[in-house]
Design a protein around this nucleic acid. Structure first.
Length: 233
DNA sequence: GCGACAG
DNA sequence: ATCTTGTCGC
């Protein structure tokens, strides 16, 4: 019995991995095209067998006067769905991407670029959550993870803006970025339709007083808030 | 065989 | 991700 289940499980994972490898061929790494007006952030929270995906939309306002109010929240959406895939390192997108994409599509404007709480191409098969969402939606995405999944690196300097390369052998797959002074670094990797430099540049443009870029922080808090309402009453 | 391992 | 208060540090 247990061996049969194990075999089925193995087949499903093998299929999922094959899909990632196939879809990864569609990834386009290139400098970001055009200008950014709308930028979104996505994250998720969990309750029992449900997932709450949250998407926050921000807009860059051309106000050169107020340098600190360049980013304004324009919209936010949450989605509550049943979870149909377990958490397995390397297969996170099959658990979170469906609900996240629904939340992103619900936004009143299509974002020019999306910041995702997870890896982009810094993944065993070069197809992390950010790349998955980017390719399926046909939109630019950037992977912004709080910890490492794969790759080697040297600790970047403790000063904000310091970076080091995330490498798999001699191949660069991402950038380890110190988003604030004396905080654990973020692992930035292109998801789709952006390159290494623009990924880091865009993340920094959305990061001010916290470790995480504003759109992702907002999505994180929103998912948590929605969760409290659900469990509250 | 022994670790590592996004959220 | 989630379970969880106070507490150390800039």
């Amino acid at each position: 019995m247990k061996t049969v289940e194990t075999e089925l499980y193995r087949h499903q994972l093998a299929e999922a991995a094959a899909l990632q490898i196939e879809l990864s061929k569609s990834i386009v790494l290139q400098p970001f095209k055009g200008s950014i007006r709308h930028i979104a952030g996505v994250d998720a929270a969990f309750i029992d067998n449900s997932i709450i995906a949250a998407a926050c939309l921000y807009e860059f306002t051309p106000d050169k006067e107020i340098s600190k109010k360049h980013l304004q929240k324009t919209d936010e959406k949450t989605v509550l769905r049943n979870v149909e895939f377990p958490y397995i390192p390397g297969f996170l997108s099959f658990r979170e991407a469906p609900a996240m994409i629904e939340a992103l599509r619900a936004l009143e404007s299509t974002p020019d670029v999306i910041l995702v709480d997870g890896q982009g191409i810094a993944h065993p098969r070069g197809f992390g959550l950010a790349s998955h969402i980017g390719v399926l939606m046909g939109l630019p995405t950037i992977g912004c993870a709080k910890s490492r999944l794969i790759g080697n690196y040297t600790e970047p300097d403790t000063v904000k803006g310091s970076t080091s390369e995330l490498l798999i052998g001699i191949k660069k797959v991402g950038t380890v970025l110190r988003s604030r002074n004396n905080v654990k670094p973020l692992f930035i990797s292109p998801g789709h339709l952006v390159d290494f430099n623009d990924s880091v540049r865009i993340v920094l443009e959305c990061t001010t007083n916290y470790r995480l870029p504003q759109p992702i922080r907002c999505a994180h808090n929103l998912a948590g808030a929605r969760k409290l309402k659900v469990v509250g009453h």
